[in-house]
């Protein structure tokens, strides 16, 4: 029974991440014990916490450093709530600014890129403020970050939305007073299938070569597509070893996440306490 409780609590905590601001929890969940189910859970975590997986490059692997980094990450998570989010989600990050001591800076924007693993994990937020595109690169485990809120939890069709830099500004404009959109409980993360309209060339990158799914027709002369076709590498998807060397094998993933699980549970409990305290505050305002 002891071994199942952390997992149970963690799944509950994950649900809280998803619903974020709602106060009710569902304790009625069947405790599951068999090995295949742990595996399933663990494989879900890789979507939510990809930064817990190490850099797959063999030269960079160092089990001891990875383990220390994971414990540091967990220690940070005990202090600040880092919710589940994806590229395409709209976030609000509150952070301390060293140029204005004593004040907090809140930035709302769409996450257009997630990169790095371990303590170096970071995400790039983009917004258009006063007709000017603004991007801020936040380190996820930066101690100056006071809080991360997910205002709209969704995914997009692409793994990187860097093309929003060349898109019409309305696609990356978000109101800084945007309210949290709450998803129904237990719902899968919705995929926003919006097709973005790009501005005419010149661009920051040759988007016609990137095989993007989330953009409208690029309206380029045929020679651009011809060149893109020439530079394609269709054989690369068959390179089994390249594929292997870009990911972490399942056995290792299971090991990492089952190690992290119990610790995440503890930080999850701390977060719950915190949330309760903040939940009492609004009565003073009223």
């Amino acid at each position: 029974m002891l071994s199942t409780t952390p997992r149970l609590a963690l799944s509950r905590q994950l649900k809280n991440f998803r619903r974020f601001a709602t106060a009710t929890t569902t304790p009625a969940e069947q405790p599951v014990k068999d090995k295949s189910d742990t595996r399933k859970n663990v494989l879900e975590y890789r979507q939510i916490y990809p930064e817990f997986l190490p850099d797959p490059k063999i030269e960079f692997r160092n089990p001891i450093r990875e383990k220390l980094e994971r414990s540091d990450m967990i220690a940070r998570r005990a202090n600040v709530d880092i919710p589940e989010f994806y590229v395409g989600s709209v976030l609000a990050v509150t952070s301390a600014d060293r140029h204005s001591p004593g004040k907090l800076h809140r930035f709302v924007g769409i996450c257009i890129k997630r990169e790095g693993c371990g303590l170096r994990a970071n995400f790039l937020l983009r917004n258009v403020i006063d007709h000017q595109g603004v991007e801020i690169l936040y380190d996820m485990y930066d101690p100056t970050i006071k809080g991360i809120e997910v205002l709209r939890l969704e995914k997009r069709l692409d793994n990187e939305l860097l093309y929003l830099r060349d898109a019409l500004p309305e696609y990356s404009t978000f109101d800084s007073n945007m309210e949290i959109e709450i998803l129904p409980e237990g719902a899968p993360v919705p995929v926003n299938e919006i097709k973005v309209k790009l501005k005419p060339r010149p661009w920051l990158d040759r988007w016609e070569r990137k095989n993007l799914k989330g953009v409208q027709d690029l309206e380029l002369p045929q020679r651009f597509y011809d060149r893109a076709k020439e530079l394609e590498t269709p054989w690369e998807k068959y390179d089994l070893m390249k594929q292997y060397m870009r990911t972490v094998p399942e056995e290792e993933q299971v090991e990492i996440f089952s190690e992290v699980q119990t610790h995440l549970h503890r930080s999850g409990a701390a977060q719950k306490l915190k949330r309760k305290r903040t939940f009492v505050k609004p009565t003073k305002l009223a």
Binding site: E51, I58, E59, C117, A121, M245, R246, T247, V248
Partner: peptide, 22 residues
């Protein structure tokens, strides 16, 4: 520093994997 790709799951190989492909 890259993030590991998570779209596909693979089993661990039981042979030594060279750090670079020939």
């Amino acid at each position: 520093m890259n993030q590991a790709e998570i779209s596909k799951l693979v089993s661990q190989l039981r042979v030594r994997v060279n750090p670079r492909l020939r």
